Amino acid sequence: MEIRPRTPEDLPACVEALAGVQAADRYPVDWPADPGAWLTPDDIAGAWIAVDSGAVAGHVILTRAMEVSRLFVTPSARGRGLAATLLDTVRAAAAGPLTLRVSSEGAAAMRFYERSGWRRVATTRETWLNAAGEPATLHHYVSPSPGHYVSSPPA
């Protein structure tokens, strides 16, 4: 498994990987009209991918506001510590504490973040709808302090 910065040439493979995640987990909740643009928001500071046997197995971005976003691991690559490794990569590139947001529908993601030492600091209602057709609930997290960070297991 290789973690490396995402290049523009990687974007089609990232969209393909995202489609597999969306089919399995409904992330993103609604498929974007332009998934490549969704993976490349205007405030992006960096983007990394995990590549396994030439295929994109995971993805993450860091925004200029030091927020982790667009983190996903394909179903076939799960269970190997890849999400934690991607978070470690972002953390190494960040200049301070990180934040992230996760929908209440992402129970597995919330458990992962909390096991990794992330702390929930707020909960908000959004204008977009969840799977039940109700306004989505987002939980806001802040990264653990450096001395309390639970790093990824060896890959």
Results as ranks from 00 to 15, higher is better:
S103L: 15
W38K: 05
G81P: 13
E134H: 05
A107C: 06
M1C: 07
R125F: 13
P153V: 07
P28M: 01
D42Q: 13
Y113T: 04
P153R: 13
A83R: 05
L100F: 06
P12F: 10
G133N: 12
S145Y: 14
D42P: 02
Y141N: 00
A19E: 14
L18D: 04
G117D: 06
A45Q: 13
A93G: 07
P144H: 10
P146A: 11
V56Y: 10
T123G: 12
A109W: 05
L18S: 01
S53K: 07
G20R: 13
A65M: 02
I61V: 13
E134Y: 01
E16A: 11
T85V: 10
I49C: 00
N130D: 15
G81M: 08
A23M: 12
T137N: 08
P28E: 01
E134K: 04
I49N: 00
T137H: 07
R6Y: 03
W31M: 11
A94F: 04
V142K: 04
V73Y: 00
T123Y: 00
R91I: 08
T40C: 08
A47P: 13
T124D: 12
S151R: 15
L62K: 02
D52L: 15
I3G: 03
W48Q: 03
H140F: 09
I61C: 12
L18A: 10
P35E: 14
I61A: 05
S69Q: 06
T40Q: 05
H148L: 14
G58H: 07
A94L: 05
Q22V: 07
G46D: 13
T137I: 15
L138Y: 11
L18K: 01
A122K: 10
A107F: 02
D42V: 15
V51R: 08
V102F: 10
G81S: 02
V51Y: 03
A23E: 14
V60A: 07
P135H: 13
T40D: 02
L18N: 08
P8S: 04
A83P: 06
D25N: 06
R70P: 11
N130Y: 07
D88H: 01
L98T: 08
A131M: 09
A84E: 05
Y141K: 00
A13Q: 12
A45H: 02
T40E: 14
T7C: 10
D30Q: 06
L100W: 02
A94T: 00
L82H: 06
V121H: 11
L87Q: 15
A50R: 06
L87Y: 12
P154H: 08
G133R: 05
D42G: 13
T74E: 05
G81H: 12
R120V: 03
T74N: 01
R26V: 09
G96A: 09
L100Q: 02
S76F: 05
V102T: 15
A55I: 08
L82R: 06
S145D: 15
L86I: 08
D43Y: 14
G147L: 11
V68S: 03
S152L: 03
V73W: 01
W118C: 08
L39Q: 08
P144Y: 09
E16Q: 09
S103V: 09
G79Y: 02
E105F: 11
R91V: 02
S145R: 14
P146I: 12
P41L: 00
A65W: 03
V73I: 08
P135S: 10
